[in-house]
Amino acid sequence: MNKLPLTVAVSGLNNTDNPGPGIPFIRAAKESGRFELKIIGLAYENLEPGIYMRGMTDAVYKMPYPSEGKVAFLDRIRYINDKENIDVLIPNLDAELHTVMISEKELGELGIKTFLPTLKQFEERHKSELEKFGEKYGIKVPRSFPVSSVSDINRIPKDFDFPLMVKGKFYDAHIAYNKEQVISHFNKISAQWGVPVIVQEFIKGTEVNVIALGDGEGNTIGAVPMRKQYITDKGKAWGGITISDQNMIDLTRNLIAAVKWRGGMEMELIKTINGEYYLIEINPRLPAWLYLAVGAGQNLPEAMLLMALGEKVPPYTSYDIGKMFVRYSYDMMVDLDDFQKISMNGEI
């Protein structure tokens, strides 16, 4: 089979102890064998490890932060596109998704394709909206309360019992055992990610996750449930294993069908002792552990790229159960010259 030449711009090269999905996405795309790939890395910070990982990217460009707005984002994308001619853009960070979604028309005019949820899907699954979302689609969710200032913390309903989860709009989640901890987490999270900060009831049980891909017409192209085996102090999986849980698969399929979800997603669920599932969060993109799904037989990045190009992709119907991953860290030697290039010129 002839390989399809394809230039893909990928962000989320922050392969740190709190990794972005960029590097695993690139790894999966390269292993697909369907494409003749040119990978353009998009980085925000000078020390994102992906910038320096040989063989991963063909070029790397620094991007203005999403908080700079759509105009700055598009200016930079135009500059990069002039040099690299991007076919598909894969944003991997929650904070940039909104900016990319509202730029879809302009990106289309540049010939750049994306495969993302609609703005409506994106908005209604926001942490601050999750309760309404659960109600609408018949899924149990823990009660939550949006906090926009320290004085709001006093208004948290009395029947919210400690411990509580305190979560940022895009990232960060901390457990709080008393009001002082809520205040301290609020201050830290709001300083970085803005408001509202979400205070959520804590549900006791086992954390299980599903990675999934919807085609935008209600079909689930792939879905793999995983249980985290080891969680870092940042709440990230350090080890995980695919599990056989038809309830989770059904939940995912029903949700994707009801919402007509388009693009990658990760559902974070808590399974209680009584076997009930609570939806904690929907991340509107493939998660950093996406390579586990590839290892278990579902190359979702490949399917996503093909769908971005307008191809119809048959759904994956099975995956290997008991497939396991363990993450590791590695000290890579970096040439000071590369650091100089990315920090001075904003590109390598």
């Binding site: 000078n46 920090s343 904003g346």
Partner: peptide, 16 residues
């Protein structure tokens, strides 16, 4: 100073 974490805006087009 080039901060390890924060990108300097040098090299990017002016935003102002």
């Amino acid at each position: 100073k080039i901060n390890a974490g924060m990108p300097s805006k040098f090299g990017l087009k002016p935003t102002i």
